[in-house]
Write a protein that binds this DNA or RNA. Structure first.
Lengths: 250, 250
DNA sequence: ACACTCTGTGTACAACGTAAGCAGTTAAGC
DNA sequence: GCTTAACTGCTTACGTTGTACACAGAGTGT
């Protein structure tokens, strides 16, 4: 039942839609709907991304979208892959520079479209744009002569790192838009909370607070990326690499 | 308007509720509601976590919950902190062992309650249980004599890594429950997708596929944790540590 | 007895995705 | 040119969500 829906996404993503010959000229089109949806998500966040709102920006009704997109789930698939299409695939070259390029491209993508991270679920259908970028990342790492599983693990580690930092950033952006208050201002306004941060309860935290550790935090992306790449460098340069396979989840 | 709501969460989390003297004995209580909600989320996932469903498991109506919890947002805050309370704070000791302990505790927590990751947003109110665990993690790292911002960055990097891997795992668990099909079976059933994975379009990916790179993937948590800790080791042992401050976001 | 307070319930509302059916529009086939 | 099939976009309607509001009943003080 649901299965056919997802296979429909595959066709939408990977195959060019057949142009209809008869019937009235469509004012809308799949790409126009997808572009409008992306604009709505960019400007108003993922919560505002309703079929009614997207249709409204196009001057149509909600149900008109269903002539061009089977449903909201498929629309999200199309939006995600369209945004991946805005990035550059990593060029061939040394592995570290290539992975850093890959990470920075993802980061720029998430900065421009923070909502991407709020709808990345494990069974979101991968589209050709996203897969091309992944392929380039794999190619960059393949020069190291690692085993296949190791190549996958290395790229996954970087991608997952960017996802993690990006998600934090995306949450922050959304909260700031919805509340109209910057993250800093909002937290400093929570006096009722800070009252409970006493040295008895939280000794280290108050100590770090008092020495200014939270005032101008390090850039999480830059700091983390450097650490992850350093860690991967240790790995690829090691002579022995013990591998832990995944146990079947659940 | 919304602000008062969040401050209400602070009181709920950090202050013991005042017992009422008059009126009928309450069959429900805040902790009973929170426990029931956690059980629902564990068993049926975050989508099933509706006020009606929680009340149903308690043999009451949806509105009865509102006598013990101001609203759903506050209930989520309470659930998250209650689950943090199930973990052990990192004991004092060498930084690497301590951080690994911290990471493994978080990982175990997320394995037991995957829904946690689907409701961690940037302004979720931190509760005493979570903050105690963070405090212990900070204490572990403080033995290194780093600057305050560096301590924060190191702990954040580890926490964010576990969040990232955990989110992927949580998505997978949820998808498996909802569909009743394991991740592996589901993807291998997407023949319409694999048809498009041709060597012309995705040369590296098909090559890795053919050499079995996707068949038994490495454990993402174990692999990533080792890399992150290695990377942090490079950092703390370095003589010079250039710091990149965060630019104001947005 | 009375007043007060607290508990749980029933009803109601606005927003969501989208199923079903319909009126209007265009091009192909004769 | 006419008919017909295909296609577009709209209207209406349904079930589900969180929760505001009013209310009946229960228990504790005075």
């Amino acid at each position: 039942m649901k299965q056919s829906d997802r296979d429909r996404s595959i066709r939408l993503l990977w195959e060019a839609p057949a142009e209809p010959t008869r019937g009235p000229k469509a004012a809308l089109s799949q790409s126009r709907v997808v572009e409008a949806a992306i604009r709505v998500a960019d400007a108003e966040g993922v919560d505002a991304l309703t079929m009614r709102r997207v249709a409204e920006t196009l001057g149509n009704t909600a149900m008109s979208l269903y002539r061009h997109v089977p449903g909201k789930a498929e629309l999200l698939d199309l939006m995600v892959d369209a945004v991946w299409g805005e990035t550059d695939p990593a060029p061939a070259g040394p592995w570290r520079e290539g992975l850093e390029f890959f990470a920075r491209q993802m980061w720029a993508m998430y900065r421009a479209h923070p909502w991407m991270l709020q709808l990345t679920t494990s069974r979101r259908m991968p589209g050709p744009q996203a897969m091309t970028r992944m392929d380039a990342a794999f190619a960059v790492v393949s020069e190291l002569g690692l085993q296949s599983e190791e190549i996958v693990a290395v790229v996954t580690t970087v991608a997952q790192f960017v996802d993690g930092v990006g998600r934090t950033m995306a949450d922050r952006v959304q909260a700031e838009r919805e509340s109209g208050v910057s993250e800093e201002d909002w937290w400093s306004g929570r006096e009722a909370l800070w009252e409970h941060f006493t040295p008895e309860r939280l000794p280290m935290m108050t100590h770090i607070w008092n020495s200014g550790g939270f005032e101008s935090p390090l850039d999480e992306f830059e700091f983390g990326l450097a650490r992850v790449l350093d860690g991967l460098a240790v790995f690829v340069e090691a002579e022995e690499r013990p591998l832990v396979r995944r146990e079947t989840c659940l």
